[in-house]
Design a protein around this nucleic acid. Structure first.
Lengths: 198, 198
DNA sequence: CGCCAAAATGAATTGCGTTCAGCTTATGCC
DNA sequence: GGCATAAGCTGAACGCAATTCATTTTGGCG
């Protein structure tokens, strides 16, 4: 049997990733079984290991793809807006909306991504930098436009934005439907801009 | 053989929890084995299951105890200070210092605690409320003292504080020794108070 | 048409959480 | 002191799922 073409190899990989995404989203990491994923993709258990080193590598590949989709959406939403606050709202809204639309995958991401030796230097780590870069761009433009303090600590601000989004986002993941992503985004941005002093 | 006294039962439980804390901190949740924990406590595998329903319940008990210690420290640190900013710095400093002192347990906590059906209504969920209550107290006092906007959204502020602390804290967990907990706490509080507008 | 290398298989291996049938031990009663 | 009792305690056996690898299948090429 001759070597697979790059294209058909990629096709099969897509097939496996799609089946894995379904299984992981439906059952979580531990409860999703290799056998179930392989069955879902219509292949044998063993073949999975020709494409991914182990179960965790498969999960990380699923999450990396998912994260990449989020970053692309966020980037597009941001460039469609003008002004610091509007761009920041676009970023946070995209983030929240993703949590509403894909709660299971977001859960997986938050639980499995950071920590564990395989994070630093992983593809997901690089994506995190790319996502952070979107925010850095917003801040740089805001500073140039006079909407942001010149002495703002970029990294601290990033930690507040992403940390705040994460915590607020858990309400969406927990299925609290009283909350509206658009309003949550607006409130978060207003708070970040104004602070809590009178 | 007569029933164990409450006291000796608690003693044995402490023994098991201590061994489990060591194992989990040293190897992480998955890699820590029941056999290893039991050996560490000087008992058989089976006995563990007379005290904890399963491996995960054992982990949650370890984390609950650890979290309780943090809350007590934080509460004590806060009441020792006066003024909104100083109290908020005390809370965040305690948080950061705990991350520096117990990185492995903090990692476990962040990775294992939220998510997974067993969170809502669990002892750890209650402790989270207690921890949040410390911050709520600080904000209420700050509002009364005129250091906090009357219309501040308490829950949003809480999400920003805890989310920000968590993200900043990862730097401590990742062993980035360039960062000083005290300075990180001061910067975080200043940013929260002042916002990012010029 | 066979040949061969790569793809694909799935049964065997392995490791670990969990269970439970049996064994130990401390207490109180005769 | 001996013994019945009931709870504590043990650790080998079980089940389940990830991973491996010897074997089979596949399809282009000389």
């Amino acid at each position: 049997m001759p070597r697979l073409t790059d294209q058909s190899r990629r096709l099969r990989e897509d097939q496996l990733l799609a089946a894995a995404r379904r299984s992981f989203a439906d059952h979580g990491f531990e409860a999703a079984s290799i056998a179930g994923i392989a069955r879902g993709a219509g292949v044998s258990d063993g073949l999975l290991y020709r494409y991914f080193a182990d179960k965790r590598a498969l999960l990380l590949a699923v999450l990396a793809r998912f994260f990449e989709e989020l970053i692309d959406r966020a980037g597009a939403a941001v460039v469609a807006e003008a002004g610091f606050a509007a761009q920041l709202r676009a970023l946070t809204l995209t983030h929240f909306q993703t949590m509403v639309d894909h709660p299971a995958l977001c859960r997986l991401f938050l639980r499995q991504t950071r920590d564990a030796g395989d994070y630093l230097g992983s593809p997901i780590h690089d994506l995190t930098r790319r996502y952070a870069g979107v925010l850095t761009g917003i801040v740089a433009a805001g500073r140039a436009g006079g909407d942001v303090r010149a002495d703002l600590d970029d990294r601290l601000f990033r930690d507040l934005v992403f940390g705040g989004m994460e915590h607020i986002g858990w309400r969406f993941l927990d299925g609290d439907t009283r909350h509206d992503p658009r309003e949550a985004a607006a409130r978060l941005v207003a708070q970040l801009v104004e602070g809590c002093a009178p």
